[in-house]
Design a binder for these strands. Structure first.
Lengths: 197, 197
DNA sequence: AGAACTCTCTACCAATTGGTAGAGAGTTTG
DNA sequence: CAAACTCTCTACCAATTGGTAGAGAGTTCT
């Protein structure tokens, strides 16, 4: 309990930046949500951009933790891939703002793209190694691990987060619909990754 | 020749909104790029948001045209899918701001998502029909066409935007790298879509 | 007790924002 | 030629922005 003011600011900022976006969220708006004045925010962070960077750092830790949890189960081949997909979807439902922040940060004009990138790099390295190992072991179809990772990332995060696109396509944003989407995605990935028999 | 002022504004706006984003691009900044005053912009468009909507409309036409060109070749099965993927990548290289705009518009909670959506809807319908038909004909592995479409969209746009992010971070997008990505993506799709033999 | 420190606030500020009013130059129309 | 219209501009404006200065209340240290 007793969440510190600093943590409350970071929570609200993650939610705001991850859904509305960084540029459109003013310090005043953020402060209003918390029932404080923006000067209090500027007491804890030297500037608006510093809040953003702190949010990114915290998000990177959350993401790394979630990934770590799934990766340390000793699963193999497709089962490991599917475990992570399931986790990403769980994240998308429980904490949509987290993946929303990733989307915000990885936008072309973003000043802080590399901040998240460098913190996530170890995860990516580990994922690439995993794919390579599993291909060698014959558990996954052989292909370029780096590129495969990129395709996997885009597909999974996209399917999990592109709510507007889904709405535009007439897909219901219900929990049931989300589960169906995950299952279909899993089938899709299985078809793409299963070693040729 | 003799591009009208209105068209020059739309061009610059597409580039700015598609890379920097709508919120962070002020009318003054836009006018500066064109060597005019923002009041001239407001002569052609009643408000900043009207500029955005006009940009979306123009982009929708460009996208529909590109799609139409690829779709009217009478290709079949995976060949048709790959032709469109190739076209999207060509777009991503030649006009990265166009996909950037799509990304900007499809941000969760976007007010203008519907505007693009309704204009793109016929394309989506057509694409869904195509996939369904090709599955029936046994040219593509059977799966939920809607989900498949979403996966395709996420993956292709995701991989294409990722190129932009890297470019923004200083990694020059070599033609070779782009082609390599497209080929890996194609392999990925082929593995997932090829009818089981 | 008093000094120092922590935290949140009020009071400002200069810059930037989207937008309005309307002048002035050039062109087209009657 | 004069009137009307088209286009771009200067001059403003009120609201919002991120940020500074410093007061005041409460707590902790000596």
């Amino acid at each position: 309990m007793a969440e510190t003011t600093r943590d409350r600011i970071l929570d609200a900022a993650l939610r705001a930046y991850g859904t509305e976006g960084f540029a459109v969220t003013s310090l005043d708006a953020l402060a209003d949500q918390l029932g404080i004045r923006k000067q209090t925010i500027l007491y804890y962070f030297p500037s608006k951009h510093a809040v953003f960077e702190a949010v990114i750092d915290a998000a990177a830790i959350d993401l790394a933790t979630a990934f770590e949890e799934e990766a340390s189960r000793g699963l193999v081949g497709l089962e490991q891939v599917e475990a992570i997909v399931r986790r990403v979807f769980r994240l998308a439902v429980a904490q949509p703002e987290l993946l929303g922040l990733v989307r915000e940060v990885t936008r072309p004009g973003s000043l802080s793209a590399d901040r998240l990138a460098t913190q996530i790099a170890p995860i990516l390295d580990r994922a690439r190694d995993f794919l390579e190992r599993e291909m060698d072991a014959g558990h996954l179809r052989r292909s370029d691990p780096e590129m495969l990772l990129l395709s996997l990332y885009s597909t999974v995060v996209g399917v999990a987060t592109e709510l507007e696109v889904q709405r535009a396509m007439g897909l219901p944003p219900t929990l049931r619909g989300t589960v169906a989407r995950r299952q279909e995605l899993t089938r899709f990935l299985r078809a793409a990754l299963e070693p040729a028999r």
